[in-house]
Design a binder for these strands. Structure first.
Ligand SMILES: [Mn+2]
Ligand SMILES: [Mn+2]
Ligand SMILES: [Zn+2]
Ligand SMILES: [Zn+2]
Lengths: 139, 139
DNA sequence: AGTATTTTGCAACAAAGTTGCAAATCCAAT
DNA sequence: ATTGGATTTGCAACTTTGTTGCAAAATACT
């Protein structure tokens, strides 16, 4: 756990730079998905463009996945080990967006149910986002 | 079917203006969901701001619903009659985004399967978007 | 340590979305 | 049909978000 970030980067054959380590550490230390803007607010020392490019690189390498939300803000969260080792995404879990606190979380233990499409449609990827009240906003 | 647009507007207690009629007609005549930009390209005579505000109004009145897509472009599609008459959304269908032609369609006949959330999470709304190849792009 | 390759920050730009306000339009009452 | 009040629109100005080219800096490799 000492240099987890650097290890992940090396494992994805990315050079280890301070911005990549910093951004990866932010994800490793967060329990919810983050928007570009969140990263910008936390890692203020890095240029906006660098953050865009880093998120793009992480997506391509399967280090993070993106979550399309109803409020038009893409959020990003760490992928499971399998995405990272194989280099492509195996994220089949449901995402939850809390209408109260605004946090988006990966429900890793809830897998997306199968669905039958009409004839002629070929499914490649499914996204399921549930809105509501999260467990920590429940009174 | 003569003045369908105007009727929908009146039914939602909105004043009937030329921009609202025009934008509503675009939806009525389209078989796929449209992005803000699509509307702008078709209804060139209206101001960008008017289109933003009109889409917002239509959303609030339950005339259209929005579809969060993986490519960070919100698309809009007409709601079923029930949304319009009750004034809030009853859209429980799956959406399909074609990776080939880029079109987003409502699969009105495919309803979103139920999913069990962990203890403490309360579900209010579910979105399910499937990516892949649509029926008309199939060779 | 020296060099080739990759990454970063900056500047400049393009696209997307927001707000205030005055003019135009709409609607309902006369 | 005309009028007056309320709503909607277009415009201008602005903020936020995302993109691109390029030189300087950092990284990886020998
Ligand atoms: Mn996730
Ligand atoms: Mn739909
Ligand atoms: Zn919450
Ligand atoms: Zn298609």
């Amino acid at each position: 756990m000492k240099n987890q970030g650097a290890d992940i980067l090396k494992g994805s054959s990315l050079s280890v730079t301070s911005s990549r380590k910093a951004i990866l550490d932010i994800f490793l230390g967060s329990d919810n998905a983050l928007a570009h803007q969140d990263i910008e607010n936390i890692a203020k020392q890095y240029d906006r463009v660098t953050i865009y490019r880093t998120l793009q690189t992480f997506l391509e390498k399967g280090i993070i996945h993106s979550i399309p939300t109803t409020d038009n803000i893409i959020k990003y969260a760490l992928c499971s080990d399998m995405c990272i080792t194989t280099g492509h995404h195996h994220d089949n879990h449901v995402h939850f967006l809390c209408d109260d606190c605004g946090k988006t979380v990966c429900l890793d233990e809830v897998s997306i149910p199968n669905v039958n499409l009409p004839k002629g449609f070929v499914k490649k990827e499914i996204n399921m986002v549930v809105n509501g009240i999260c467990n920590s906003c429940q009174k």
